[in-house]
Write a protein that binds this DNA or RNA. Sequence first.
DNA 1: CCGGATCCAGTCCGATACTG
DNA 2: CAGTATCGGACTGGATCCGG
Lengths: 138, 138
Amino acid sequence: MPRPGSQTSLEPPSSGRSTTCTAMSDILNRIGDKWSVMVVAQLGNNTRMRFSELRRAVDGVSQRMLTLTLRNLERDGLVNRTIFAEVPPRVEYELTALGETLLEPIYALWDWAGAHGNDVAAARERYDASREQEIERA
Amino acid sequence: MPRPGSQTSLEPPSSGRSTTCTAMSDILNRIGDKWSVMVVAQLGNNTRMRFSELRRAVDGVSQRMLTLTLRNLERDGLVNRTIFAEVPPRVEYELTALGETLLEPIYALWDWAGAHGNDVAAARERYDASREQEIERA
DNA sequence: CCGGATCCAGTCCGATACTG
DNA sequence: CAGTATCGGACTGGATCCGG
């Protein structure tokens, strides 16, 4: 927690945290992607995984999406892709140094999901329930 | 920073961090959304903002997307929406207690974007450049 | 085993117009 | 001011087939 006074700061938007919205937006387009987060999280646990290993670990991911996600992560300098000239072919993925710096914020999100996921689900049910009442009234 | 040893843990996938991928996936569908992150970050700075205030602050957001984002955040119990029966009408938004707990992981991401955004951009240029060479060769 | 290529349905999102 | 409604284009993502 490097930043003091992060929560409930009364400062105007453009004071301490100077990252522009557009820069943040650009990063979120890659990082905010569901599969990217899950792949990076997996590689953070396992350092060096094969394609099909990742495919099994990530759960709902399709082959196509895993390929695309890995390409984008490689393009962004977050994962290394090493091809072994063998038969049958083998490809392994691992986080780069830059990719490992992403683990901390990702784990923060991951832990938040674990800690408050049920709160969100409960709030959602409450919201939907009160909306059903409005529909009945009409 | 509640968790010790978050980074570079060598533990197998299903050891310490037990949140399932599917639960994480569910949360990421809402939280991983670009606009949600930016709106929560703004409300973390400013506590209580009006609709058009947010619209101006968030930058590229369309009216429609801001509306939808705020509805979803309200539904998830992250944002309170209070309507003032006035003319002209006024609606104010603020983070709930649950929403404020989200600030920490969001700020972590935000700061990462500020610290490493240029690294990602550089990696992207390098990648694209090396791909152009391959095209020339063909 | 890895992943490129193609097709296609579903979804998202911006623009616009209209209401309380 | 703060939305809702509708439309149409763009993009996403899954399924499938094929190639190295």
